Amino acid sequence: MRAWTLPLMLAGSGLALAALRLAGGSPAGAAVILLAFGAPAVLLSPLAFPASVTDAEARRRSAADGRPIVYWRAGCRFCLRLRFRLGRAARRAHWVDIWRDPEGAASVRAAAGGDETVPTVVLAGVPHVNPDPAWLRGQLPR
């Protein structure tokens, strides 16, 4: 649920402010406010990321197909930067939301010296904490 807290607060605030603008007779202002609050709400929500799987499932799939595992959490600006720099190639990795999967969070802590530093990418069994998106794009299978 905490992954949705900030996006829901943004969306609710935007709706309230837009309703005030609309009641004041400014439909254009209401539309601008909805866009200004709605876009960040979507970007900071889990909707901006490929579907998450569990840590165990990601490890199983990665062993079978050689794709990297990306550990992330909603609201993380570094995860968002990685996701958008990868573009459509992001689908060629297995994504694990550490807020939804305690085993995933434990894997990140093991890789990052006890911290839950995300994004953490595991490629061929080797963890890389907050890797350069261009480097990761080059490592993704075609």
Rank of each mutant, 00 (worst) to 15 (best):
A3E: 15
W4Q: 04
T5N: 11
L6G: 01
P7K: 03
L8T: 12
L8P: 01
M9G: 13
A11W: 08
A11L: 14
A11Q: 11
G12E: 11
G14D: 02
L15D: 02
A16G: 07
A18Q: 10
A18E: 01
L20A: 15
G24F: 15
G24K: 15
G25W: 13
S26E: 12
S26I: 03
P27S: 12
P27I: 08
A28E: 14
G29N: 07
G29P: 05
A30L: 13
A31K: 14
V32C: 15
V32E: 12
L35G: 15
A36S: 09
V42M: 14
L43Q: 13
L43M: 15
L44D: 03
S45Y: 14
A48D: 11
F49T: 02
P50T: 02
A51F: 11
A51H: 12
S52C: 14
V53S: 11
D55F: 02
E57Y: 07
R59G: 07
R59Q: 14
R60S: 03
R61P: 00
R61H: 09
R61K: 09
S62G: 02
A63H: 10
A63S: 13
D65M: 05
D65K: 10
R67M: 02
R67F: 08
P68C: 13
P68W: 02
I69G: 00
Y71M: 05
W72S: 06
R73E: 10
A74V: 06
A74R: 07
R77E: 10
F78Y: 12
C79I: 04
R81A: 13
L82Q: 04
L82P: 06
R83M: 04
R83S: 06
R85G: 01
L86D: 08
G87V: 01
A89V: 08
A89I: 04
A89E: 14
A89R: 09
A89P: 01
A90G: 02
R91I: 09
R91H: 15
R91K: 14
H94N: 08
W95S: 01
W95C: 01
V96W: 01
V96T: 01
D97M: 05
D97I: 06
D101N: 10
P102A: 07
E103L: 10
G104C: 09
A105T: 07
A105E: 12
S107G: 09
S107L: 05
S107R: 10
A110E: 08
A112L: 06
A112K: 13
G113Y: 14
G114F: 11
D115Q: 12
D115P: 04
D115L: 13
E116L: 15
E116S: 07
V118S: 00
V118D: 06
T120P: 00
T120I: 00
V121W: 05
V121T: 07
V121N: 12
V121E: 03
L123K: 00
A124T: 01
G125R: 02
G125P: 00
V126C: 07
V126D: 03
V126E: 11
P127G: 11
H128N: 06
H128G: 05
H128P: 00
V129D: 04
N130R: 11
P131Q: 08
P131K: 12
P133L: 10
R137Y: 08
R137T: 05
G138E: 12
G138C: 08
Q139P: 05
L140V: 06
R142V: 00
